[in-house]
Nucleic acid binder design. Sequence first.
DNA 1: GCAAACCATGGACCAAAGTCAATGGTTCAG
DNA 2: CTGAACCATTGACTTTGGTCCATGGTTTGC
Lengths: 122, 122
Amino acid sequence: MRIGELSHRVGVSRDAIRLYERRGLIQSQEGDAETNNYRIYPEDAVLTLELIRDAQAAGVTLADLSILIGQLAAVDGDDFDGDAFLAGKISEVEARITQSQRFLETLKTTRQALEDAPKDAS
Amino acid sequence: MRIGELSHRVGVSRDAIRLYERRGLIQSQEGDAETNNYRIYPEDAVLTLELIRDAQAAGVTLADLSILIGQLAAVDGDDFDGDAFLAGKISEVEARITQSQRFLETLKTTRQALEDAPKDAS
DNA sequence: GCAAACCATGGACCAAAGTCAATGGTTCAG
DNA sequence: CTGAACCATTGACTTTGGTCCATGGTTTGC
């Protein structure tokens, strides 16, 4: 599919998609005379973009993500000795989730407190 | 306490602390002749900095955080009608945790797959 | 009394992740 | 055949969250 459709389906801007591609996170067939010089993205680019979105929510940078995506793809390919990297990221993401949950509790407690003390309670 | 001790106790750089203060996230007594022109930070700045750390892990910006910290502080003070803001942030953080957990699963699955397929399995 | 270790302020600089604008090519509707 | 709607590439610009540097004032150890 072309970039417009991809962008529309995933809800990611064309510019962001192009950025990810330059950073090696997704691939596309380069356009030739046939396709009007328009790049063609494979169906699974949709999944990759969704993965990127989740990863970013988890605080992973694009640079790290490009390494990780390599590992995801290499799952049954080369022997890849980068398992330490993967383990490291898992720890980081777990830590971030813990912190996020702690913060979430604070927010909820606050909301509760605000509700219990209706406005104008002086 | 002075900024050096605070920085050391929480593990946040002095520069970052000063930045947070300029953004209104923490307060300090301005230094006078008495204190050698050194700012004095209250004990609870430690807690605030830890809160900031968690909030950032949860993907909350400093700008939003300064609003939220206002609410936390106002819990039993003014009537504050910004509850919608708080509710919005709660949703955002929940969404981000969900995404992070999804991504974490992907990472763990990958690790497992790499383990199951020991290197050199061609 | 002088270097080392603190502190303050201000401004320059940086990386990450995008967005925006300029320029130029294609195609389709009316 | 013209404008609207796509597409590509390049480079400038923006926001966030810092760090680094320069300059200058205190105070404590030796």
